[in-house]
Design a protein around this nucleic acid. Structure first.
Lengths: 195, 195
DNA sequence: GCTGCACGGCTAAGCGCTTGCTTAGTGGTA
DNA sequence: TACCACTAAGCAAGCGCTTAGCCGTGCAGC
């Protein structure tokens, strides 16, 4: 019936993101994904090896983007205060704007197979390390003051990640609003000197 | 073979908590639950109406406990600073200690049916209202200072909830450690005067 | 104190359906 | 004619849940 669609593969990925985010990996059937992409169930397997690999693809892409975003924030300045501001703003706004994908990235790790999970965990450790480094750099420089830099760094990421859980597009706040306020919260959490 | 077990019903609930937390509601089969409780698949339906109702039971119990915990923290004092300290300590420590159940409470809402979800959502709104009231009371009293009390209150709950996602029993920190540090973070987030 | 039997917790077996995925083939393009 | 994107049909396995019946227990009648 339909001829070749040049973007069928990515349409399937988009459909999978929508479905996994709404119903979870195990709550989504390959038929859900196919019909959300406007194709027959078999089309999924023309373009992708398995349902799990589709999840891995989404998870990997999402983690890469998040790591890049954190690294860009750090690279934007040599000052820990400015770094934290940049990272937290981008991180929180991203988890609001991209909450659909971010839900999969953060809440469907257990559905990955062992090999894929090991690879994805590496990204997560890298992200945590980057944030920890920003906080400890600020403490060392005397511009931050916190009794437990490691837990504080984890809490900063945790706070940003959880935005993906509660954020709604129809809500009162834009991703930008959230980025702004979370910036203020982050600076307070690390005990940065008041402006 | 086996005789009557007086606690079979609650053993099935415990098994469901373990299974749902580890593999998610849709990733868990009724056979998983039964065998984790040391029973045959049919035993689940002797004591519970359906798999969904088992989830509802766990979710309701968990939400009740969380709401009570927040209310107890507020009732412990008339001072917003002391109230926030009590609530945040209990809330964060609870999400660490009870991370297994808390994961179901916070991440499996979408698997509830419409009627059950409506009931559970009422609990969540009540919890949010309580936290918002503490923050606004502090702002009104002049002991807290934040540019967006509503978002700050949501962030406080969000921070506590996400503990359930990342906390591991084998980690370096006890629930008490987390309660202590999250207290400090919370007071900073609301802009409480330094001690 | 013993027997017979109703009761209720639990299981073996399996029903109808859905799952992830495969196979064989169709139809448009070059 | 060869190719490629895609589908119709369906397979084996696993799903939530039901049914029929077993077995240990407790109690009425003797």
């Amino acid at each position: 019936m339909a001829g070749a669609q040049p973007n069928a593969r990515s349409r399937l990925v988009d459909a999978a993101i929508e479905s996994f985010a709404a119903k979870g990996f195990h709550g989504t059937t390959t038929r859900d994904i196919a019909s959300a992409a406007g194709m027959s169930p078999a089309a999924v397997y023309v373009h992708h090896k398995s349902k799990e690999e589709l999840l891995y693809l989404i998870s990997k892409e999402g983690h890469e983007r998040t790591l890049r975003l954190v690294e860009d924030g750090i690279a934007s300045s040599a000052d820990p205060v400015a770094q934290l501001r940049a990272v937290m703003h981008a991180f929180a706004a991203h988890h609001a704007r991209g909450h659909t994908g971010a839900r999969i990235v953060n809440y469907e790790l257990a559905a990955l197979n062992d090999e894929h999970l090991a690879e994805i965990s590496e990204y997560r450790r890298a992200i945590e390390r980057r944030m920890r480094d920003v906080v400890t750099a600020g403490v060392t420089a005397g511009v931050f003051a916190t009794s437990n830099p490691r837990m504080t760094a984890l809490a900063l990421l945790s706070l940003g990640i959880d935005v993906a859980r509660w954020y709604r597009d129809e809500g009162d706040w834009s991703p930008e609003d959230i980025g702004d306020h979370y910036c203020e919260l982050a600076l307070r959490m690390v005990g940065a000197a008041s402006p």
